[in-house]
């Protein structure tokens, strides 16, 4: 049995090595070398200039993640307490936008909010002032929430369906009103879902270049755009790799802090 189980994992291991481990090693290699292949810290130092861009990326991603969490939590709870058939239907509705390509969705959004876009045309026809919507921080945040909300709902929903309704009844039985039940039972039991939801929204948001590129304009140049330019327009593999490495390190640190918070939270209640 053990042998069989190991064999089954080989295709994935090969996949991982080919498309994750080797590229990662290459990024590390390029980040610490120059065009001729000799060791240098030049590009790492250069990347440090982009820390303000990185901070802005983290800032926008954090706001989007927070909005997703606030929007997804009550909805996921509502769905998780419905009958099985209703749950399936509602989750299908959540997944529905994901049937359309990510780029296409973002383009559609930009067509809606651009200066001569659908909304502004409509406003002008009504005799109102057009609004500056595209190329703002708000547009980027909106794009992130719009694209990544399902990734927050799904893990929250799947953890919440696992909460035994008798445990919720027990809280009510012991004197907890709805708000107290949420605070002291449902929220703590949903923490694993919240953490994975945050990860699944924050990581792609912080590194996006499509959303910022299409909706953010030149004022909202994010770290993702920067890396994309290095690789795709400037063809500077070393510079791009170094910036990517910086971003990865920041993301890893953020995640470590988050997971620490989660375990501390559950430990705190256990002690």
């Amino acid at each position: 049995m053990k042998m069989k189980a190991r064999w089954a994992s080989y295709p994935y291991i090969v996949w991982m090595i080919a498309f994750t481990v080797i590229p990662l090693c290459m990024i590390v290699y390029f980040a610490f070398t120059d065009g001729s292949g000799s060791f240098t810290l030049e590009y790492i130092k250069k990347s440090a200039y982009h820390i303000p861009t990185l901070v802005k990326s983290i800032y926008l991603a954090a706001i989007s993640t927070a909005i997703c969490l606030v929007a997804a939590y009550p909805f996921a709870y509502y769905v998780s307490r419905k009958s099985y058939s209703k749950q399936k239907m509602m989750i299908m509705l959540v997944m529905l936008p994901m049937w359309m390509n990510f780029l296409l969705r973002t383009h559609a959004l930009s067509a809606l909010i651009e200066d001569n876009g659908v909304i502004n045309t409509l406003l002008m026809k009504l005799g109102l002032e057009p609004l500056q919507m595209i190329n703002t921080e708000g547009a980027v945040i909106f794009g992130m929430v719009y694209n990544y909300l399902p990734y927050m709902i799904l893990p929250l929903y799947s953890i919440m369906t696992k909460i035994d309704s008798r445990v919720i009844e027990a809280a009510a039985d012991l004197g907890a009103n709805t708000l107290q039940t949420h605070k002291s039972v449902i929220l703590p039991l949903s923490v694993p879902g919240i953490v994975s939801g945050i990860t699944m929204v924050f990581v792609p948001s912080v590194s996006t270049f499509v959303i910022s590129g299409l909706l953010g304009g030149s004022d909202n140049y994010l770290i993702g755009d920067l890396i994309s330019v290095q690789f795709n327009s400037a063809y500077n593999l070393n510079y791009g790799s170094a910036t990517s490495l910086l971003l990865m390190v920041v993301v890893i640190i953020t995640m470590v802090i988050f997971n620490r918070l989660e375990t501390e939270d559950s430990e705190a209640t256990l002690v």
Binding site: D164, R166, V167, E169, A170, A171, A172, D173, L174, G175, A176, N177, S184, V185, P188, L189, S266, T269, L270, V271
Partner: peptide
């Protein structure tokens, strides 16, 4: 509503709060 009734329930399969220890369960 249940939380205002002067009665308490021992549930089937206990329904203890899994995130709380024995002390906090009883103190809930």
């Amino acid at each position: 509503p249940p939380h205002k009734r002067q009665l308490n329930t021992v549930f089937q399969k206990y329904a203890l709060f899994p995130h709380l220890d024995v002390y906090e369960n009883i103190a809930f």
